[in-house]
Every structure is written in C-alpha cells, then in structure tokens.
Design a protein around this nucleic acid. Structure first.
Lengths: 270, 270
DNA sequence: GCATACAACTGGCTCAAGCCACTGGCTTGA
DNA sequence: TCAAGCCAGTGGCTTGAGCCAGTTGTATGC
C-alpha cells in the first residue's frame, strides 16, 4: 500500500478525482511530499488509482486551483513552495521616509535586498472609473483625470500593477504628466501644489486576476490578487490622489499598524 | 454570426477552450451577457464552436476559476453578480464602540441591516501555530494558548472564520474559557486582566481557501479568502491577543483609515 | 384542483484514446 | 571534448462517448 493512499471507502461518495486530490493534499500537508518535490506523473497516478489519465489529471488541476501545486510541461507537477517576500507596511506613506529620497516602493525593495524597477507604460488624460471618480471627487463622465499606469518589479519579477489617478486640472502642464516626475516622486510635486498628505484611506479586497493581470504579473493558476484602492487626503481632508494597487498575493502581504481610538465622552461618529 | 463570437484567427495559437472562454468573457464585460443571465449550455456551445462538449465545458471551467461565472447542476451556468457586503473598518476595534455593548462584528452587521449570528465550535487549550506563538510571545512547543474558534454569519450566510488565541496562563479559570464571555466580549475580560487595547497590528494576505474553509464558508470555485493575522497590543506595547480572520473575499472587504506620520527631525524607527 | 409521473433538459464526472510541445538525459559522431 | 541529435517521459489539450444526478415544465390521472 502506498503511503497516503486511502481506501476507497474512506471517502464514501467522493468522486475519484477528489479522492486522489485529497490524498495528495494530505501527503503534502504531512510532509511526505516536500516543498518543491515532484508529484507522481499523471500516467503513474492514474495507474496507481486504477483510473483514466484524465481523472488523475483532474486531481492535479484541483490542487493547482488551490494554489498547492504547479505543473510544468515536459517536467512534471511540483509542490509549490510558500514564499512571502514583500510586506507593504502602513508606514509606506510616512513622510519620515522622505529623507531617503526614495519612493515608497524603492525603499521597501531596498530594505529587502531586491533591485527595484518601475515601468511606466502610459500616462494619459482619461475618463475615470466610477469608483475612482467618487473618491477623488471629480466628474465620472468626462476626462477629468490623469491616469499614470506603473508596473513594479523586484529583481525583474513583476510584483504589482499600480494605476494612479490625479486631477487633470492640477496635473496639466506639470511634471506629473512626465515619466520622471522629479525629487520625491509625484508626492513631491503634489506637495508643491499645496497637498500635504495627512490621512490615507485604503480599501482592500481580494479576487482572482483577469487574464490580462495574470499575464503581466506572471501569475500561475490558483494565485489571487490583492487589490488596494488607496485615497490620499490632504491637510484639509480633501482627496488629491487615488491609486489602485494590484498585488500578486503569492508574493505580497500588507501590514497595518495603528493606534486604537480610545474611549471618549460622546464622540458620536455615526 | 453570433454576437461576440470571434473568427478563429483572431486568437492565432490559442487553444479552442481558451478562445471560447475569451469570447464569453468579452460578452460578459460588454454586457451582452448580463449579471445573473444564463450562458448557453455546454452542449450548445460545443455545437456553435464545432468542438466536443468537454472543450466547451473546459471554457466554462476557466471562467469559473476566474470567478466570473458559476455553474449549477441541472440548471446551467450563470454570470456571477458582484456583491460586496461587509466592509470591516479599522475602527472596528475602536473603544468608542463599547458604548453600544456590541462586539465589533455584531455592530458591523447591524450597521448593514444584517442579522448576526456567532457560532463557537470549540474553545480549547492548544499548542499554538508558530506564527501565532511568535506574535503572542509564548512558547510554540507546549500548550501555551487557548484557542477560541468562531464562525460568523450574517443572515445565516457564513462570512468569516475567526481563530482567537489567548495566553493560557491568563485565560485559565476565567470566562475567557466560556462560550459566553460576558459584557463587551473577550476584550471586556482582557481589560479586567489589565490589558487596555492601545495599538493593533494587522497582517493581510490573500490565498485560495482550503477545502475545509470552502466547505464552512460555502465558497464557490474562483473565490479567494482574505486572511488577517491580527495582534492586539496593550498600554505597555505587549501583545495580549492574536486572531486569525479568514474572510470570504466575494462578500468582504477591509478598510483602513489612518493618519500619515509627519516628518520629524530624527525619528530613527529601526 | 392538485399531486404524481414523466420527459427533456441541465451540469458532474469518467473513460480510453490520440496528438502535440516541451524537457532532460543519453547516444552518437565529428 | 563537445556539440548535435535522438528518444523516452512529461504535461497540454482535444475527441466522442457514456452514465449519473439534479431541475423544470408538462402531461396524466385521481
């Protein structure tokens, strides 16, 4: 009897493909199949379980969907090794980092010994998406924003896609329209326009990537993305910049450290 | 010619299943297939594209994996409607909510007109997972914690799984070991033990659910989970509670609002 | 009027076979 | 020595067939 192979009646009305997947999952979790190790080939699995190759294949596909294994044509299927590289902290916007002269991403990359690279595929005046328009307080039915699209890499591995939206009326004719926006990046220019970043608001969600995102980020099946819709508020509490971050979730985490609001007499915040 | 059907040479070396999936995706994005609408059946799609049923089926599976459609045996495949219900704000720990006498989840649910329910499947002394042990500053090789597992529901729909870990030496013999922990929940009891929640630290990641989580949360294929590893720090900066939140990402988002640290002379933070 | 039974659909899952593209180790020959 | 070529093994993708289980509308019979 092979290790980790269950008797058919352990999983009564489980279809064979799920049963094989469950067996393999157990072997991975219990370490009988180590990280990076090769799984039995589809043809071998099929024979071991007395099923068609398609059924064994389906089992491996299920595990790939769960982000547990990954297949390579001509080589085999392998147990995926967990790796969490980037942790974007809530201090990434902190002004104290200004002293370094680096933008938040470059700073984070350097901290972790990675070589950062930033591509700027496009900078264009556009009609904003409705969620961005709402948050930036601009009309959603006219080209009221400048959209800067950035792709971020660490050691040439794509890490995140960032779409930054600024008010067209403010960005027009400034270095905010250029690829190289000058010292301290766009926040430097925005400060010169009278916007000191005072508060931020990050709305976080997770979803599966679009095929387009999967292509740009080199995503394997079973890897979701973290989407952060970020709003910067200035000293007057007015939004002056909205960005949509799309992170690959297998390489990225977020970290928020914050004080807890303490009890007060009658702070009636709706 | 059917709407949205591309000529084969639009996608040169795309395999048929991907081509069908891309066509359907386009039809969904352009609104030719509305939210909730039924897709053509597998057999019909196969005939339209001149492929085997399995190939059409594969196309639909690809879309399901991307979270775009969902299939129901005997009924058909349908365009999934986006719905984001719960938004957990960073003020959910705020002490000012104490006035309501509700725990954060109950408060959030009420705000949104949902009926909250909390199951407590288990409360037990355990050996902590290593990531929890690190953060709670307890030994990882002995039963040094109490693990409270909670399942949260809104209108009987499962929303999140929460595992809370407390120091065994503190929780032992108190209401922290009971299902009903008293006024203001466990935070009320912890405060009596001298821990006033002063800062929090949330580490956020996203991944595909385990089969177990998919079962508890009723997750469809193509829906990731948001995992939040939360640490509460007291007035002395000491951790006194660690919780792992597993949210279904199709119904849940997170919101963090925080002030930006302003520039200072030489705040040499690590 | 109403419950039952049925028929025609739907997706779920499997089979057995085949061809393709890619990998990696081995053999061959210069 | 080393490069080129071969070949066995791998996953990628499709075919066409079959059976099952769940759904829904319709016809039947009480």
């Amino acid at each position: 009897m092979l290790v980790g192979m269950t008797r058919p009646d352990d999983h009564p009305q489980q279809p064979p493909s799920r049963r094989i997947a469950a067996d393999l999952r157990k072997q991975i979790e219990q370490g009988q199949l180590a990280h990076g190790e090769r799984l039995p080939s589809e043809r071998v699995l099929a024979e071991q379980y007395g099923t068609a190759r398609n059924t064994a294949r389906e089992a491996i596909r299920l595990l790939a969907e769960q982000g547990l294994v990954t297949s390579q044509q001509g080589r085999g299927s392998f147990v995926r090794s967990p790796e969490r590289l980037f942790r974007f902290g809530s201090d990434r916007y902190s002004l104290k980092n200004r002293a370094t002269g680096l933008t938040p991403f470059r700073l984070e990359a350097k901290k972790q010994g990675k070589e950062p690279r930033i591509d700027v595929p496009s900078i264009a005046r556009e009609v904003p998406p409705t969620d961005v328009a709402e948050r930036l307080k601009v009309p959603a039915d006219e080209p009221s924003v400048v959209h800067r699209e950035n792709h971020y890499f660490a050691d040439d591995e794509p890490v995140q896609i960032v779409s930054t939206y600024l008010r067209w009326e403010e960005a027009q004719g400034t270095r905010l329209m250029e690829r190289k926006s000058g010292a301290n990046g766009i926040y430097g220019r925005l400060e010169e326009l009278g916007h000191r970043m005072t508060d931020i608001r990050d709305e976080i969600s997770a979803r599966m990537p679009t095929p387009e995102e999967a292509r740009i980020l080199h995503l394997l099946p079973g890897v979701p993305v973290l989407e952060v819709l970020h709003t910067s508020l200035d000293q007057d509490g007015e939004p002056f910049e909205v960005s949509r971050y799309v992170h690959r979730a297998d390489r990225t985490g977020l970290l928020y450290e914050l004080p807890v609001e303490q009890e007060e007499a009658d702070q009636d915040a709706q």
